[in-house]
Design a protein around this nucleic acid. Structure first.
Lengths: 232, 232
DNA sequence: TCAAATATATGATAATTGTCATTTTGAATC
DNA sequence: GATTCAAAATGACAATTATCATATATTTGA
C-alpha cells in the first residue's frame, strides 16, 4: 500500500476537513505528521484517555464506540477515509468520549496535538470546516437520539441498515461493503443480538434484504425507508 | 426586565460562546442585533426551517425537541442564558434539526445570519469557541445515545433528574428549578408518560426524591447517581 | 375565586424485547 | 483441507414496558 507522504498529494483530502487548507497549511501538516498502521481489531484510542494527537484516516474502517455499564459496546459512528479521530477531545479539553477500533487493517496519519493546534491557529478556515462538520454531526446525533427513544427495534434496524449502505456503499455483489457481526449491528441498534438475528431473518423472509453469511444486501430500499420512517 | 442593549454590558456573556470576543467584536454584534421576547409556549424556531439568524438567549428556558413519526416530542436538550440557537443549522447549511419552544417567558437577542457570518470571519476565536462547544455537546450526545440504547427506564429517569438538577439548579425550597410535566420528562427519557409517573412515585417511596405537584427535589443524589450508573 | 381543562395516578392487560439454553453454521487459522 | 472457535439461528420462557381505561388531583385562565 502506497500512501503519499505529502498531504498535498493525498487524494483523501477531498472529503476531509482539510479540503480548504492552503498549500502552505498542507505542507505544514506533512512536515509534522507521522504515518501509522493498525491491524484489524486493534484499538486506536481508548475511551476516557486524553489523546496527544489526532489521526487522519487514510484508508480502512474504524468504529467509534462507548462501553455501557455492563461492558456492552454501543457503536456511535463509523470513521473512514478522510475522517479525523481525536480532535474533539483535544478541542473540548475533555477525555475522549468513545473508543476507536479498526474494523479492518487501517492506515492513518498522526498529527501531534501541538501541531494540530498550530494548524488551527494558522488556518481559521480549517477550524471553520471542523465546526461545520461538528454541527452536521450534532444534527445526526439528535436524529439517532430520537430514533432510539421512539422507534421500535425493527424500525431502528431498518434505519441502521440504510445508514450502513450509505456510509460504506456496496461491493461488486451488491452487499453492504463492511464486515460486521450481528452483535455489532445489535450494538448500533441498541438491542440484544438475538433480536437482530431474528429481525434480519424476518426482513429476509419479507424480501427486503438478502444475506449470505455475515453479508447483507438491501433489496427494497424504498420499503426499508418507509419501515424506518425516514423522510427526505 | 431591563436588558442591557449593548453586548459589552451583558452579564450573560461570561457563560456564552461570546466570552472571548473582543470589545470591537461585541460592539459589532450590538450594532447588528435586535432584542426579542417570547411568551411561554411560543415556538422560537421550527424543526426543518432554515433560520435567517441566530438567537442568543438572555434569560428564560427553552427546550429543543424533535417530533418523532407519531408526532411525539423527543426533548434533546435545554437552552438557557448565554446559549445560542440556530447557529448549527446556519453553519452546516442544513435545515434546523430541532424545534425550540420557550418553557417560560424568554428574552433573546437576534443576530441576522449575515452579521453572524461576519462576526465569525472577523473573530476566529469566536468560531473556535463554538467548535469547542460543539465538540463538548457531541460528547454529551454520545452519552445520551448509549444511555437510551442500554439503560432501562428507571436508570434513565434517574439520570435525567440529575441532569435537570445540574442544568437548572434548585429553587429556595430545594426543588429542581424548572417547570416540566411528567409528559415532558417522559419525552426526555424516551418512554411513556405513565411509566415516568409510576417510577417517580416509586423513587419517592424509596426516598430518593420528594415531590409536590409537578415539582421534584432530589433527596439522595449519591444513590441516584449509582442508580443511573453515572461515574465521574 | 371558580370552573374547566389538563395532568397525575392507578389498575389491568397486551405487546415487545430480553435472557437462557441448545444446535447449527461459518469464518479464521494453520 | 481440517480443525477449532466464534457467530448465527432457534425455541421457550421471563421481564419490561406500552397501551387503554378510568378516577383523582392540580393547574390554568378568566
Amino acid at each position: 500500500m502506497d500512501i503519499p507522504h505529502q498531504c498535498q498529494f493525498c487524494n483523501r483530502q477531498a472529503n476531509s476537513a482539510f479540503h480548504d487548507l492552503s498549500t502552505e497549511g498542507l505542507a505544514e501538516i506533512s512536515q509534522l505528521k507521522t504515518c501509522v498502521s493498525f491491524r484489524k481489531g486493534q484499538v486506536i484510542m481508548h475511551e476516557g484517555a486524553r489523546p496527544q494527537g489526532v489521526y487522519c484516516i487514510h484508508n480502512g474502517k474504524v468504529k467509534l464506540y462507548t462501553l455501557g455499564t455492563e461492558g456492552k459496546e454501543q457503536i456511535i459512528r463509523f470513521v473512514t477515509s478522510g475522517d479525523l479521530i481525536g480532535y474533539r477531545s483535544i478541542l473540548s479539553e475533555e477525555p475522549i468520549s468513545a473508543s476507536a477500533t479498526a474494523l479492518e487493517d487501517t492506515h492513518a496519519c498522526y498529527i501531534p496535538k501541538s501541531s494540530f493546534f498550530k494548524v488551527i491557529q494558522d488556518n481559521p478556515k480549517f477550524s471553520l470546516n471542523l465546526l461545520k462538520l461538528s454541527c452536521h454531526e450534532l444534527g445526526e446525533a439528535g436524529k439517532m437520539i430520537t430514533s432510539l427513544a421512539q422507534k421500535n427495534v425493527k424500525e431502528r434496524l431498518a434505519e441502521i441498515l440504510l445508514i450502513l449502505n450509505t456510509t460504506f456503499g456496496e461491493d461488486e455483489d451488491g452487499y453492504i461493503d463492511i464486515n460486521l457481526t450481528r452483535e455489532e449491528i445489535a450494538n448500533m441498534v441498541g438491542t440484544a443480538t438475538e433480536s437482530v438475528i431474528r429481525l434480519i431473518s424476518e426482513l429476509r423472509k419479507e424480501g427486503y434484504i438478502r444475506s449470505k453469511g455475515k453479508r447483507i444486501a438491501l433489496e427494497d430500499r424504498v420499503s426499508l425507508r418507509q419501515m424506518a420512517a425516514i423522510y427526505e
